[in-house]
């Protein structure tokens, strides 16, 4: 465990140090890149709760990522045009309120999706979560009110009390802070009785039911919490790009979120952070050297699956110990 703790601290410091250094050197783009890493890592932390702790392979988490993005986009649009939302309730550009709305919406939608999906298992679970995400994707593309496939622009980045979010570094710090909170949540869940029950449900559901804990309810709760964290990340992602669109809901995005978790090491606390760092940097670096970057990205991903089981954290910090 000690080696992993050192690796975790190293990753956390690295992600903080690079933007600070970039800021003093006047290279704001690296702050943007680090913000992207932090936000995608948070989305993957959310997925990791379902996937790593609960063993629930959701191939539809883009649905929650996108819904979070749309929550931010829709609220910002209404506020920008000074249109009330409904029943005369005024909209807002305050990030904390937007985050709450995003998480609430994702949690509420995750409950019915989870309730139906969790009746299945294995490949069926993978595919039914994909089906739900596809439903929402097609709905978003063809629903004209909020831009359809063109997406929704956020003309001015939403605000956070006391911080100028339009500047890269303060916005990065907001995202970094939320990532830290997300990681703490994951850590607390994993160590809690709830987390123990969830992991027991993954390993042996029958035994768990035998001691009087219904695995379904535990899993459903985990799925909803997981969706809420990913939705929060979606809201940040929309603010980062000042834009939200159905491509956040696409099955490619679901695939990418899975890639982040597995690349870093599923179930590991800092797995999503390591995965997001590697993925974003690869995309940036390969994209800079060759037009064929997607080919080499595929090759590297394949190499990781085949030869580096346990992902990046497995390489850095050794095999995970159970118990």
């Amino acid at each position: 465990m000690k080696r992993e703790a050192i690796a975790n601290a190293g990753l956390a410091l690295l992600l903080l140090a690079v933007p600070l250094a970039a800021s003093t050197m006047g290279e704001p783009f690296y702050i943007t890149l680090a913000t992207r890493i932090a936000v995608l890592a948070l989305a993957a932390v959310g997925l990791n709760i379902a996937l790593g702790l609960g063993g629930l392979v959701s191939f539809g988490h883009a649905a929650f990522f996108g819904l979070g993005g749309y929550a931010a986009g829709i609220l910002a649009t209404h506020a920008f045009n000074a249109e009330p939302l409904f029943f005369g309730i005024p909209s807002t550009t305050s990030m904390p309120v937007i985050w709450l709305v995003a998480m609430l919406v994702c949690g509420l939608i995750a409950l019915p999706i989870g309730a139906i999906s969790l009746r299945t298992s294995g490949v069926y679970f993978i595919m039914i979560t994909l089906a739900f995400a596809q439903m929402i994707y097609y709905f978003a593309i063809s629903w004209p009110a909020y831009g359809g496939e063109d997406g929704l622009s956020i003309y001015v980045r939403n605000s956070f009390p006391g911080i100028n979010t339009a500047r890269p570094l303060p916005f990065f710090l907001v995202c970094y802070g939320l990532l830290a909170l997300g990681l703490m949540l994951f850590w607390a869940l994993r160590g809690s009785r709830f987390g123990a029950a969830l992991q027991a449900a993954r390993q042996n559901a029958t035994r768990l039911a035998a001691v009087g804990i219904p695995p379904f309810r535990i899993r459903l709760t985990a799925f909803a919490i997981s969706a809420m964290v990913t939705g929060l990340a979606g809201a940040l992602f929309a603010d980062l790009n000042r834009f939200t669109s159905p491509s956040m809901l696409s099955w490619h995005m679901s695939g990418e979120l899975l890639v982040l978790v597995i690349l870093g090491g599923k179930g590991r606390l800092f797995g999503p952070v390591a995965g997001a760092m590697l993925y974003v940097l690869l995309e940036y670096w390969l994209g800079g050297i060759t037009e064929r970057w997607q080919f080499f990205l595929g090759l590297i991903l394949l190499g990781v699956v085949l030869f580096a089981r346990g992902g990046l954290m497995g390489l850095i910090a050794g095999k995970e110990r159970h118990g």
């Binding site: 996937l51 490949v123 597995i262 394949l302 699956v305 085949l306």
Partner: peptide, 28 residues
């Protein structure tokens, strides 16, 4: 070359590896 190393893995690894293959085939 690839797939037979995946039979013993869980579905997650299979999804990721074959996702990587899509990228390689399309760009190839």
């Amino acid at each position: 070359l690839v797939i037979r190393r995946l039979y013993e893995r869980d579905h997650l690894d299979q999804v990721l590896a074959t996702f990587a293959l899509i990228l390689m085939f399309s760009e190839g």
